[in-house]
Simulated scan of single mutants.
Amino acid sequence: MRVLGIETSCDETGVALFDTRLPAGEGLLADALYSQVAMHAEYGGVVPELASRDHTRKLLPLIDQVLGEAGLEKRDLDGIAYTAGPGLVGALMVGASTAHGMAWALGVPVLGVHHMEGHLLAPMLEENAPAFPFVALLVSGGHTQLVEVAGLGRYRLLGESVDDAAGEAFDKAAKMLGLAYPGGPRVAKLAEQGDPTRFRFPRPMTDRPGLDFSFSGLKTHTLTTLKKLEADGVLDDQARADVARAFEEAVVDTMVIKCRRALDETGLKRLVMAGGVSANTRLRERLAVEIEKRGAKTFYPRARFCTDNGAMIAYVGAQRLATGERDTRGLMQATPRWPLDQLAPPAE
Rank of each mutant, 00 (worst) to 15 (best):
T206G: 04
A81Y: 09
D237M: 06
S97F: 11
R203Q: 14
F247A: 02
R21N: 15
P23A: 09
G90M: 06
K219L: 02
A131G: 10
P204R: 00
A99G: 11
R198A: 09
A279R: 13
S140D: 13
S278L: 04
A96F: 03
L125S: 03
L343I: 11
M255V: 13
C259F: 06
D64Q: 15
H221P: 00
T13E: 04
L287A: 08
L218W: 11
P204V: 08
N280G: 11
A38R: 14
P48G: 09
G217T: 09
D232V: 00
A103H: 00
R245E: 05
L22G: 06
M205L: 15
G142S: 04
V47D: 03
L152H: 12
I313A: 05
D64L: 12
L60M: 13
P202E: 04
V135W: 05
T224L: 14
V289F: 09
Y300V: 10
A296H: 06
D327L: 14
V277Y: 07
D164W: 00
M93Q: 09
V289S: 06
P336C: 10
Y300K: 04
T254A: 10
D264W: 09
G14S: 10
G153R: 00
E325G: 05
L111A: 09
C259M: 06
K219G: 06
P185D: 13
P301T: 09
A166N: 03
T98C: 15
T224S: 11
T266M: 09
T281N: 12
Q238E: 14
T224N: 15
L22K: 13
D19K: 04
A105N: 05
K175I: 06
L331H: 12
G217V: 06
T266H: 03
G324D: 05
D207E: 14
G27R: 02
L138V: 15
R282C: 08
A314C: 05
T220L: 07
G101N: 09
